[in-house]
């Protein structure tokens, strides 16, 4: 840990690698985030409408419930569980392959702090870009629900839009962003750890990749409980 979080040997190299990691881990994840979010947003809206179709509940509740589910849980916890699969396995397999093909040894022999050089840009890059992914997720999820309102007769567009704005609590947005930063750190650091300490060959790289996803997911769920307790109470 102390070898990872030290001052980089060369800031110029660190910055260029961080930008590279932001592109690879963050920007390249935007299409996946958008596709999943738009469909999940639509499904949440449909299920809300089907489950709360009572004359006692105002019709704008569909928009309200969709928004709050997206803000409180889907755009951070569920999104990060999905990203643990994509980004976590990517990081673990990349670093693991570098380990078994002696690329990490080559860095060490050159006098490069391999932990700092390989892991820190990934952690910093992913944590920095995570709020952007969360913002994309929120926007496209709500748009998915909006699509249900537009293309079906389950709920009117005006009631859905009214529901999105009703009883809005700004803190829910910040709560989602704060949680996502912790989760981004968990995914990038645990996956890097799993990859860095691979011993053996291709089979072990595959195992490390699986371990990275499983461990990240468990830690995300644990941290979700802790953060929800701390931030929402």
């Amino acid at each position: 840990m102390s070898r990872v979080f030290t001052i980089p040997d060369k800031w110029k190299v660190f910055c260029s690698r961080t930008i590279f990691e932001i592109t690879k881990l963050g920007v390249d994840s935007i299409p996946l985030v958008m596709i999943i979010s738009v469909f999940i947003g639509a499904v949440i809206a449909i299920q809300m409408q089907l489950n709360i179709s009572s004359p006692l509940i105002p019709s704008y509740s569909v928009g309200l419930a969709t928004r709050d589910i997206v803000l409180l849980e889907f755009s951070n916890s569920i999104l990060c569980l999905i990203l643990a699969g994509k980004v976590g396995s990517n990081i673990a397999s990349e670093i693991g392959t570098m380990r078994v093909t002696e690329q990490i040894d080559a860095l060490e022999i050159m006098g490069v702090n391999s932990c700092n050089f390989l892991v820190l840009p990934k952690v910093v890059g992913f944590v920095l870009f995570m709020p952007v992914l969360v913002a994309f997720c929120i926007a496209t999820s709500l748009f998915g629900g909006f699509g249900v309102a537009v293309f079906t007769d389950l709920i009117s567009v005006s009631r859905y839009v009214y529901g999105l704005q009703a009883l809005f609590q700004e803190w829910y947005v910040w709560y989602g962003f704060i949680k996502s930063l912790f989760f981004a750190f968990i995914i990038s650091s645990i996956s890097s750890f799993c990859g860095y300490y691979v011993r053996g060959g291709a089979l072990e790289v595959g195992k490390a990749s699986t371990n990275a996803v499983v461990s990240s997911s468990i830690f995300i769920l644990l941290m979700d409980v802790v953060l929800t307790k701390l931030l929402l109470q």
């Binding site: 002696e102 690329q103 040894d105 060490e108 022999i109 006098g111």
Partner: peptide
Amino acid sequence: KHLREEIGMLFQGSALFD
């Protein structure tokens, strides 16, 4: 670290950065 800047190494599998 300083000493390693004076060292070059050729690994069995080349260890080039992919």
